[in-house]
Design a protein around this nucleic acid. Structure first.
Length: 141
DNA sequence: GTTCTCACA
DNA sequence: TGTGAGAA
């Protein structure tokens, strides 16, 4: 159980780190997915031997990755913002990059809504036609 | 349990 | 954007 919920005294003394399974459990991810994010350059955990050790900072990055995914951002887009964050860039540059990404995302979503509206209109028209023809042939053979 | 790599959708 | 399988 990660320290975000409760911090036992012994964990307060040790520099807290997380294993890949702890993070996977906490965020309902597979360990494979977490390693995949690392392959894509979104995470860079320390190692104890060959085992990955995640600091609270890496955990925060993972949270940000998940937030980006909820917004429909690509991993590449998420990586860009994360890089600014890690490089200690100004919050301003991060926010500007985020706005840029959100803008692109909004355009895509709005286009999809338009496309959906077009299909809904087609469906409505077809339904109307079907009902009309049913009524016309109501008593006939 | 965790690592990596290759294949696959 | 991930998953499955196999080997270490």
């Amino acid at each position: 159980m990660p320290a975000s919920v409760a911090v036992p005294a012994h964990d307060a003394l040790r520099c807290e780190t997380f294993t890949i399974t702890e993070l996977a459990d906490e965020f309902a991810l597979t360990t494979r997915a977490i390693r995949f994010y690392e392959d894509q350059g979104l995470l860079a955990p320390q190692r104890r031997g060959t085992r990955r050790l995640y600091t609270p900072r890496e955990r925060v990055r993972l949270k940000l990755i998940l937030r980006g995914k909820r917004l429909g951002m690509s991993l590449a887009e998420i990586a860009e913002i994360l890089d600014l964050y890690a490089a200690g860039k100004s919050e301003r540059s991060q926010l500007e990059k985020l706005l840029e990404t959100l803008s692109r995302r909004r355009a895509i979503i709005e286009q999809q809504r338009e496309d959906i509206d077009v299909v809904l209109a087609e469906i409505a028209a077809l339904e109307k036609d079907c009902r009309k023809r049913l009524k016309r042939g109501a008593g006939g053979a």
